[in-house]
Nucleic acid binder design. Structure first.
Length: 628
RNA sequence: GCCAGCGUAGCUCAGUGGUAGAGCAGCUGAUUCGUAAUCAGCAGGUCAAGGGUUCAACCCCCUUCGCUGGCUCCA
């Protein structure tokens, strides 16, 4: 081959080799980017080619490693279970999976066997070989192998005459866009994690496949760090901490998806709700209350009977059907309609800590995160179309402010018109643009979720993450033109004519239950002082100071410090340990010295301790209140 | 709802086809102690519920309920 010049990561190299792999000397490079596309290292060199290397530890590199590992797993599965038909096997946020169609499911012992076989395949260091075939060739190839899912995928892919790519390693050939690591030996660290059912193409009308989850990293050390993270995350699971700190409970006798707040959880919730009431008053909202059960007829008018019935509970009294509310909007709408409204009255902002009940599918219930009864910090804003952007902006401001108070990071998404929806194109466009403009005006980054809006309007969703990185929706801002129309809502404009108001549905924390769940995981139960159910435990060294300790506790309680008194006949170390396990922010130790000097020894969660006057301690606790 | 796994004392967990154990918590007593567990004794269980197989079931089988991890759906 004649000599050519290529650039590798910006550096010009003269070579007479034929592939990228030939000129890469290190083992860290597992793929490359050429003209913006990821390619295998077997990609042929050409004069002037600009090559960007992909390092195994880069995000893209790790994704490739995982993707290649999923192919190796598929090969192992096919070797051990010839009846398993491969479907798809992508890399994910923190690992990979591969779905198989198989009559039997995989057991945990199967997983071990598969892992062992994968290790053997890795040791063989078989190269990943890219092949291209015309679509019809590929179809008959996979028909031959009795892999109907691959055939289905190919048939859905591109134009008839186009080529598709296949990757072969060892005995396994898979339809795949690639690229892959050069050979199986490049996989240095992987682990299979779990089995699960998953519907073909994610549609519950389709057949359920057997999914195997695993993960892979560039080095054994990185894998270990990840597995360790998972272990640590389990320790901050809100269900575990909720039990340990006696915040909430659930009971088979009550029913699934129902939360009982125990005294400490009750306090936490009250504190959050008090904060919410305060901030809503300040932001110009009115607090209202609606009943939990409303006549069936009203749910027909709202469209819930047509669109939400499976999720609702009903009850019948005096031959009348009542729907137990899954949403709070209807009472708010009726308040609006209780009298004539002028354009001067708008916007009207009705806020309710509304307890809603939804019949969630049994399999989705999850601690506080997904329940069948929960309280929303819900509000409905009725405004003129020209006020829409200002109202949306104000809500986003409020979300930012509240999230800052709780020190949460969050992500925003806009969801646009779904296939099944109501309302005119014009309304949808205006509402969607209002949401986008508001976010742009604020300079906030956001993703667009095409077709994921509510049936009545587009929305902005705000998501926060739990301990293991699963994201949960909290705030949502939804535009609605439909309910005002269904309920024939109106206001009298400056022109003396009737006009339809725009309605915004919005929550900030979302579900109080879910928010508390995420809050518990975020702080691992060690809540900031202002929402800690118990802010301080007063403990005496011996019985001799019990009376003084009791006096200290009384004084604190009178100053609205949430305090507990521990005068048990136990050693101070024992009391400290217990308060620490309960994640109490302050431990107030009183012994003879403190009693004599009329002081308290304050120990923080960090272990720092300082002797001070009680008044000073009280002001420290007061200063922890957020300023809103 | 679907796939898989699991359900033993208040909690965390052992356990075997021959009718149950530990630690912590609880109770009682002793100890009065300076910043993450003082010692001793006692008590505590229809082994999720119901049915079946068996001379005998916590253990094997079936059904139901609940929980866990996913899928679908969602605040």
């Amino acid at each position: 081959m004649p000599q050519i010049t290529v650039t590798v990561d910006g550096k010009a190299i003269a070579t007479d080799e034929s592939t990228i792999k030939d000129i890469i000397k290190n083992k860290r490079t597992i793929a490359a980017r050429v003209n913006g596309n990821l390619v295998d290292l077997s990609f042929p060199l050409a004069d002037g080619l600009a090559i960007e290397t992909i390092d195994m530890e880069s995000d893209e590199g790790v994704h490739l490693i995982r993707h290649s590992t999923s192919h190796i797993m598929a090969e192992a599965v096919k070797l051990l279970f010839p009846d398993a038909r491969p479907t798809i096997g992508p890399s994910t946020q923190d690992g990979f999976y591969y779905d198989f169609d198989r009559d039997d499911s995989f057991s945990l012992e199967d997983l071990e066997k598969i892992e062992k076989k994968m290790q053997e395949l890795i040791e063989l260091d078989a190269p990943f070989v890219r092949k291209e075939m015309k679509k019809d060739e590929a179809v008959s190839f996979f028909k031959e192998k009795d892999e109907p899912y691959k055939v289905e995928i190919i048939n859905d892919l591109g134009d008839e005459g186009e080529k598709v790519s296949l990757y072969e390693q060892g005995s396994f050939v898979d339809l795949c866009r690639g690229p892959h690591v050069p050979s199986t030996g490049y996989i240095k660290a992987f682990k299979l994690l779990s089995v699960a059912g998953a519907y073909w193409r994610g549609d519950e009308r389709n057949k359920m496949l057997q999914r195997i989850y695993g993960t892979a990293f560039s080095t054994p050390k990185a894998l270990k760090v990840y597995l360790n993270f998972i272990e640590e995350a389990k320790k901050r699971d809100h269900r575990k901490i909720g039990k340990e700190l006696e915040l909430f409970m659930q009971s088979d006798e009550i029913g699934p998806g129902m939360i009982v707040y125990m005294p400490k959880g009750g306090r936490l919730r009250t504190l959050i709700e008090d904060f919410e009431k305060k901030i809503h008053f300040k932001k110009g909202y009115d607090i209202v209350y609606g009943p939990s059960i409303l006549r069936g007829k009203l749910w027909e008018t709202s469209g819930h009977m047509d669109n939400y019935k499976e999720n609702m509970y009903f009850t019948e009294v005096d031959n009348q059907i009542y729907g137990i509310k899954p949403m709070n909007c209807l009472s708010h709408i009726l308040i609006y309609k209780s009298k004539m409204r002028s354009y001067r009255d708008l916007p009207l902002r009705y806020f309710e800590l509304g307890n809603v009940t939804r019949h969630e599918k049994s399999g989705v219930i999850h601690g506080l995160m997904r329940t069948r009864q929960f309280t929303q910090d819900d509000a409905h804003i009725f405004c003129r179309p020209d006020q829409l952007i200002d109202e949306i902006t104000a809500i986003i401001d409020m979300v930012e402010e509240v999230m800052a108070v709780f020190k949460f990071e969050y992500e925003m998404e806009i969801s646009t018109r779904p296939g099944k929806s109501i309302g005119s194109d014009q309304d949808w466009e205006m509402a969607t643009n209002a949401l986008i403009d508001a976010l742009k005006k604020k300079g906030l980054p956001f993703d667009i979720n095409e077709g994921d809006g509510a049936f009545y309007g587009p929305k902005i969703d705000v998501k926060i993450k739990d301990a293991i990185g699963r994201s949960w929706q909290c705030a949502t801002i939804q535009c609605d033109f439909s309910l005002p129309e269904r309920f024939e809502m109106s206001f009298i404009g400056a022109d003396g004519e009737k006009h339809a108001p725009v309605m915004l549905h919005r929550v900030i924390l979302g579900s109080i239950e879910r928010f508390i769940g995420v809050l518990i995981e975020h702080y691992a139960g060690a809540f900031p002082v202002w929402i800690a159910p118990v802010q301080a435990v007063v403990m005496c060294i011996t019985d001799a100071q019990a009376e003084y300790a009791s006096l200290v506790a009384d004084t604190l309680r009178n100053n609205e410090v949430r305090v507990e008194l521990d005068t048990r006949n136990e050693k101070i170390g024992y009391k400290i340990r217990e308060a620490r396990l309960q994640k109490v922010p302050y431990m107030i130790v009183v012994g003879d010295r403190e009693m004599q000097d009329n002081t308290v020894a304050v120990r923080e969660r960090s272990g720092d301790q300082r002797v001070m006057k009680l008044e000073e301690f009280i002001s420290i606790v007061k200063d922890a209140e957020p300023v809103i």
